[in-house]
Design a protein around this nucleic acid. Structure first.
Lengths: 225, 225
DNA sequence: ACATTTCTGTTGTAATTACAACATTATGAA
DNA sequence: TTCATAATGTTGTAATTACAACAGAAATGT
């Protein structure tokens, strides 16, 4: 547990909680760590959620598969981020998405009820925890809305540039890495992979964009383009 | 205030709170009611949010306008539903959407900080209020995800049928009213209005769908189509 | 009832996309 | 290294869409 303290300290959920208090709180939350290999289900669609997950290492994807097995990527999951929190708040509804490891990773699970109901010991920080949890759910909301912003654009070019300029802004740099390969990016934006590749080539030819693998550089001022 | 008690009782936020306690709580929450005419801003993009809104009567829309004034509808707002709750949880970030009345309506505003911080009086129900607030944010999350599900479909026909079958399911009936006119539905699904009308006509010709104004009937078993 | 405005449906065309099929380039294992 | 496999890029075509322009219907105000 100690090895992940630096991640926990930086996480939104434990923001403002003294490091020495965190491990005490983890006890209260019945926290346990599980390891996953690449491409494993961390959470499976249909599960009833009672624990909130937090990625400690590696990377994961939140995905949704429709009736015919067509896969959509809802979001990437980075270390320090919680997931399944929405469904933990509505325990009567089974989760309608899956969380899958995109590399080897470690995941912390915490009992939702113990986040919600004040415990006897670390109560000073419990209020803070609850506030942080609220703001984490709210942030999830923002990322969903942001994704919708990209998807609502009409052309592949607009969708891609909307996504990339948002990533650029997030990273405070015109050069940045994205957490997706080509197929994943296509599944995230709900477009065809080959059409995406094609459009990327054009943008590169036009000098708007440079890329190599997952590293992109946006030229000039293409914000909200 | 009394005239809206039936709405408040049925709302998610006050679910499980005794009716006689509700008005006491409204005091604690510094609740006040404002009236809006049709097409007025209830909340304006760029505002800093400290109050949570709840629609008491009429209908409203949560919209987003991009750089070039292109309007997207994020969600409709029905009586009893709260809004702006996401940004109330992250008060440092200005809201990036607007809420506009779609008819005359009354709106209840409640101080977010007083929802979060337990007050001295009605404390028994305050825990319940907090839980309900959490579940309301979570439900917002579900509606956003559901909208993304529709938008992620590749053709107008699929998007429309995905939306309509979800509405049918929500209403537990193959005949149901939707809260949008044609232009609004197009803005909600991010498609062209005339192309939407065109596709609707085809679906009607094919006997898959019947509609008149905002009332739709889905024939046979078109679920997740 | 009338005029005006808004909403909805229709059609044609140019632009865009999905899809398939294949070429090229990485990646990883033996 | 060599082979096999996965990831990415390229191209052509059929399908779909956006957009504009317009017609008819419905709603609204006077």
């Amino acid at each position: 547990m100690e090895e992940y303290l630096s991640i926990l300290k930086k996480s939104n959920l434990f923001s403002g909680v003294q490091p020495e208090e965190i491990s005490a709180m983890l006890n209260c939350l019945s926290a346990r760590i599980r390891h996953f290999k690449k491409e494993e289900f961390i959470i499976r669609s249909g599960d009833y959620i009672r624990s909130v997950g937090m990625l400690l290492s590696g990377s994961a994807l939140i995905i949704q598969e429709d009736f015919w097995g067509k896969r959509t990527i809802i979001s990437d999951v980075m270390p320090g981020t919680i997931f399944a929190e929405t469904y933990a708040c509505i325990p009567s509804i089974p989760i309608e998405m899956s969380v899958i490891s995109d590399s080897e990773c470690d995941v912390l699970f915490m009992d939702f009820n113990k986040i919600l109901h004040v415990c006897t010991s670390a109560c000073t920080f419990h209020t803070r925890l609850l506030q942080n949890f609220l703001s984490s759910i709210a942030r999830r909301n923002l990322t969903l809305t942001k994704k919708m912003q990209h998807m609502s654009k009409k052309t592949i070019r607009e969708k891609l540039l909307s996504y990339l300029s948002a990533e650029s802004l997030k990273n405070n740099s015109s050069t940045f890495d994205i957490p997706f390969n080509r197929q994943q990016l296509a599944d995230y934006l709900s477009i065809d992979r080959s059409a995406l590749s094609n459009e990327m080539s054009k943008l590169q030819d036009e000098g708007i964009l440079t890329y190599k693998k997952n590293r992109f550089t946006l030229k000039e001022d293409f914000h909200e383009g």
